[in-house]
Design a binder for these strands. Structure first.
Lengths: 227, 227
DNA sequence: CATATAATGTCGGGTAAATGACAAAACCCC
DNA sequence: GGGGTTTTGTCATTTACCCGACATTATATG
């Protein structure tokens, strides 16, 4: 494959717009490509050679499992987003892993040190990247607050709204989302049990706010817009 | 005051080591100095002129209060640490504020945009800064996991260990911490109520693991080291 | 030193959500 | 299309923790 074809898509990411074609090519020389299918686990915590990953296609979750097997999902990564050792810190492993949610994904990755080197040469890139990490930081802060201040129902509603904003297709009076999450997945995201998530989803369905099935999720537009 | 005297202490921070004396001076021209006493509120996240703050002396907490008046403390900032609009993002509001915990503090601050400008000129600085934010990100991830996976007692113990590591003075068989936190403060940090925090502290005291009073906290060394 | 204010101690009742257990439905694939 | 597997639905029980209420003790302040 010509590297021209390989790396064109990085242009889609705001982060890389500041780079010249040559610099993109430079990064792509050190790029690894990878396809994945639903359920695949992409490890990065334990890796000797820390990497930054770019998700070209699909969706994955960043999760952690504790000693008792309980899982929480800290973040959903969508097409065009970055994940991996984003904190540029290679020290402590923290039990995180990435798992594919959609039927298939395409991932591109580069070595952390190469990326760092590129940032050294390119302050614009460094600054954009700093903002990207900062934004993720802020989002997590928000999840943390929600977890403490709000009950499971509110957290579910908040998540559904976020999901709709990210992934939804607007119709006349509804927002339709192609559903790649099980109720168990949703439970992990909003930090509750599968049973509670199921009950709450059915409750919202009974109230006429949404229609959930394994293929798609249809949200009432009123419901999404109102606070 | 000569700016030479004013800014020397920034040298203590790893972040600023990459800057030349001239650049430090440049930052210091735009620097505001401030003293504060216990209870003072230093900063609101909705400020018109977003700033980065450097804590020269003392300790402060970064908290958020929700509509019902419930408070959580997301972070304790110690001498030598940064706080403020660290995510470099001013779009999303998050109701954070910083409040002084110790009897007095000394703070230095600069405007976000000036700091950004400096990073543009200095990729090294941007890189170090990203690592700093990345570390905070990682710590928050850890708090998030703890909140979901562990009960209040475990979270309290974890916090006490962290506190001891940051602030403790080792004696023969104990670790002594000068106490600037009320039980209410501690409750906010571990995300529980004041009553629960009180009960748990007394429980740990009964078990012989610690001695808490308003002046100091003495932790049994065994207790801190184990697990 | 007296009094107000803040911080700590204690308890019982209430509740959101976890837990465990099982059934039904949907989906996969041989 | 049939058998296994995954996902969803439902319920009864339990529990950690919140909430309110009040007493007690420590600290600040005039």
């Amino acid at each position: 494959m010509h590297s021209e074809i390989k790396y064109w898509f990085l242009r889609d990411h705001k982060l890389f717009r500041v780079l010249s074609n040559d610099q993109l090519k430079q990064l792509c020389v050190i790029t690894g490509f990878k396809e994945g299918k639903k359920g695949d686990i992409i490890y990065f915590s334990d890796s000797k050679e820390p990497r930054i990953y770019f998700l070209k296609k699909g969706a994955i979750k960043i999760s952690e499992v504790d000693v008792n097997g309980n899982e929480i999902t800290k973040e959903i990564i969508q097409k065009g987003d970055l994940f991996g050792e984003l904190s540029l810190d290679t020290t402590i492993a923290n039990n995180e892993f990435a798992q594919v949610l959609t039927n298939s994904v395409t991932i591109c990755s580069f070595l952390l040190k190469d990326f760092e080197a590129l940032m050294e040469q390119h302050p614009d890139l460094a600054l954009s990247y700093t903002k990207l990490v900062g934004l993720k930081f802020k989002k997590l802060k928000n999840s943390y607050s929600n977890l403490v201040f709000k009950d499971a129902r509110s957290r579910l509603i908040q998540f559904l709204k976020d999901w709709a904003a990210r992934d939804g297709n607007e119709t006349l009076d509804a927002i339709v989302i192609e559903n790649y999450l099980t109720q168990q997945d949703i439970a992990h995201i909003i930090c509750t049990t599968r049973q509670t998530a199921t009950q709450l989803l059915n409750q919202l369905e009974t109230e006429g706010h949404l229609k959930y099935d394994r293929k798609e999720l249809v949200l009432d537009k009123q419901f999404v817009l109102q606070n």
